[in-house]
Amino acid sequence: MRRLGLLLRLAAFSLLVAFLVMPQRFAPLFAPFTEYGAPPIYDQGSLLALAAAHLGTVFLAAAASTVVAVSLGILVTRPSGAEFLPLSRTLVGIGQTFPPVAVLAIAVPLVGFGETPTLIALFAYGLLPIFENTISALQTCPSSVIEAARGMGMSSRQRLLGVELPLAMPLILEGIRLSVVINVGTATIGSTVAAKGLGEVIIAGLLSNNTAFILQGGLVTGLMAMLLYDGMAGLEKRLLRAVHVG
């Protein structure tokens, strides 16, 4: 069972890479979906470059959201930041009722077309799951453990770095993964505001009525998102095992 899963993942990954590197080889597969001799494979840019730009945007935004959200999460769970806690919790709840498209669309008139509105939307929307998970993880740290750490003479800083954050790590990592997955989707929509990314292929297909573009764009983006989610989940497990063994 486990071997089958590994085999499936490897196959999906190789298929994705093969398609991105030499898409023309797959042209016969997509040719039936075109009409009037339209190109069967996206021809307005390199698919590999688009995929790289897509991932670049997603990870840049996710890194920024992680730094800000984890710091804020730590701040509002310290005694000195307690006044900000109720509002933070409510805001996270309200923020998640905002559709990512709305965040993206509102950013456009403010900062213009291109990469910037997408980055802003990804950053802002990506904050929520990480912030939420950081807060709940730090708040549910068993008080007996913290008391024990205090009893051992650890300063509040040592307690945070040595006890609370490592205990909170699984939930924080899960928040980062959620945030990355949402970002991959939102970055796809970013192509409607001229950000470089794989959404471009789908949008081009919709505009030129080329079903082959829509299908390959959808398949590549979907496959990439699934592999990313799955890969990050695996990485998380490995990382946690390393921490707990070490």
């Binding site: 989707g185 796809t188 929509i189 959404g199 919709l206 079903t211 398949l219 983006t221 979907g222 699934m226």
Partner: peptide, 20 residues
Amino acid sequence: NLIQTIPSIALFGILMVPLG
């Protein structure tokens, strides 16, 4: 879970083909 990770435009696009 895997279905949820597929970006919405991508899923819309994939479904357009069989429905069409």
